[in-house]
Design a binder for these strands. Structure first.
Length: 456
RNA sequence: GCAGGUGUAGUUCAAUGGUAGAACAUUAGCCUUCCAAGCUAAAUACGCGGGUUCGAUUCCCGUCACCUGCUCCA
């Protein structure tokens, strides 16, 4: 079996401690993945960089960390309980799956399907002998609901009264805290609230490694602005996000914007644009920037009477803020960065695998290598010094050339080699991943030298 | 969930109805070792369960996982 490039990359990531299959020794659990030491480092680097750019460096934004479990009424308000309840139906003849309401709509547009129960939909399909658009036969299974929210319960006893859901998006944790944050931080519109956290969706079909999983990390900013300025801010954040993605070091040819057509717009969104990346398996959405208008705040006001109406202190004008939401999946950014940096080149007739990760994202920025094991004490000393400033690995096993290649494989941009001269003159060899070039640097100047190359 | 495909050391591949070999990788040792050198050792596999059989990694069934579609989405 010939392996495609994506399979090669996945194998490489698993073999080098970036990602492991979840619960592997128990035969795994479908589409769960654990991040190994290296993948975790890269993920944290991306996540920290996002927080740096969207919160720390922003005069307008602040960040929170909202709970995963929320009062289930939140999901009634947002429509998730209703909209994540798709009535699915399978054709027994050709095995193609359909949505029951859409199935009826397509062949009998005159029939009203809005608000019908499953059994009523079932009855309509039988009564009008609706045919499968794929094979033309009218022979379907019963409707089955596929709730995309993970359900659990509070307390020791399971029951419908105490049902709660794992949040399917982090955004609502921000919206319900709009007033808390605005008041305590004394924020004036426009301002944004950021949140990084896990979300859970019981996807019908996950896949493509860590691209679509049922448990994933979202990094979201809910940016609140005055109605009428929303389109301006939409454009602003759209550009800001693209710049962010480009700073992750991926090839620009592999990036594009894609506007959602009116037909595919979410019911809550006035406009949505995706930043997409060209994965080996095709274009995939990385980042969605949505104009959510006042849908969310208004919904919570209507349901609870929350004081989410904002009074402009200058004009005394009152309004419900509009929200522009850049929402990105951390796992997808990670996959993008890892896939994009993977490179195989020929050196002296041998394959050289190099992860050309941006230095600020690499799992290790520096590796300290004693030329021979006798030099380990000096190298360990150097490791301790550098580890206070950078992420550093240490390797004393095998020939120096082999160790350079090992570091290339996991994307370490700089290797620092301790040799016998080091003992005499306090200098080391700094070897660069991308150029394979070497330079002699004094230990006293090492930190500044590496810092100048690692920082953006 | 449905349809199709795949499943042997860490990886890539062999062989076989009588319980498995290699290459590379890994670990240890030799070597004043700067781009996967060499030499000497070591460790590691038939996804799981059941059936047929004297005996199953091999045949059958089930299951689990992964890949490709259908659907959904960050």
């Amino acid at each position: 079996m010939k392996r495609n490039k994506f399979e090669q990359i996945v194998t490489h990531l698993i073999e080098n401690g970036f990602v492991f299959q979840g619960s592997e020794i128990y035969d795994g659990l479908s589409n769960t993945w654990d991040y190994g030491p290296l993948g975790n480092n890269v993920k944290n680097n991306i996540s920290n960089y996002w927080w740096q750019k969207f919160v720390t460096e922003s005069r307008l934004n602040v960040g929170i960390d909202a709970a995963i479990l929320m009062n289930p009424r939140v999901w009634e308000t947002t429509g998730h309980l209703k909209n994540f309840n798709d009535p699915l139906i399978d054709c027994k003849n050709c095995k193609v799956r359909h949505r029951a309401d859409e199935l009826i709509n397509k062949s009998k547009p005159e029939l009203e399907v809005e608000g019908l129960s499953d059994s009523e939909l079932d009855a309509l399909i039988k009564e009008h002998k609706i045919k499968c658009p794929n094979c033309g036969v009218s022979d379907f299974t019963d409707i089955r609901k596929f709730n995309m929210m993970f359900k659990t319960h509070i307390g020791p006893v399971e029951g419908s009264q105490n049902a709660v859901y794992l949040r399917p998006e982090t955004a609502q944790g921000v919206f319900v805290n709009f007033r808390n944050v605005q008041r305590t931080m004394r924020k004036k519109i426009p301002f944004g609230i950021a949140n990084i956290g896990k979300a859970f969706r019981n996807e019908i079909t996950p896949g493509n490694f860590i691209f679509r999983t049922r448990e994933f990390t979202q990094m979201e900013l809910e940016f609140f602005c005055e109605p009428g300025t929303d389109e301006k801010w939409f454009e602003y954040w759209k550009d800001y996000c693209l710049t962010f993605v480009e700073d992750l070091g991926v090839k620009k040819d592999n990036l594009r914007f894609r506007d959602h057509t009116p037909a595919e717009l979410s019911f809550y969104s006035k406009a949505t644009v995706d930043i997409e990346y060209l994965f080996p398996f095709g274009w995939g959405e990385i980042w969605g920037i949505a104009n959510r208008t006042d849908y969310d705040l208004k919904g919570h006001i209507d349901a609870t009477g929350a004081k989410f109406v904002y009074r402009d202190p200058m004009t005394n004008e009152e309004y419900i803020p509009y929200c522009v939401e850049p929402s990105v999946g951390l796992d997808r950014l990670l996959l993008m960065v890892l896939v994009d940096s993977y490179d195989v080149e020929q050196v002296d007739g041998q394959d050289r695998i190099v992860m050309r990760l941006a230095p600020h994202l690499a799992p290790y920025q520096v590796s300290v290598l004693p030329l021979v094991k006798k030099l380990s004490p000096k190298a360990e000393e150097l490791f301790s010094m550098l580890a206070k400033k950078f992420t550093v690995s240490y390797d004393e096993s095998g020939s120096i050339g082999r160790r350079y290649r090992r570091q290339d494989q996991v994307g370490t941009p700089f290797c620092v080699t301790v040799d016998f001269e080091t003992l005499d003159d306090e200098s080391v060899t700094v070897r660069e991943r991308d150029t394979m070039s070497q330079e002699r640097i004094k230990i006293s100047e090492l930190e500044a030298y590496i810092r100048s190359k690692v920082e953006l």
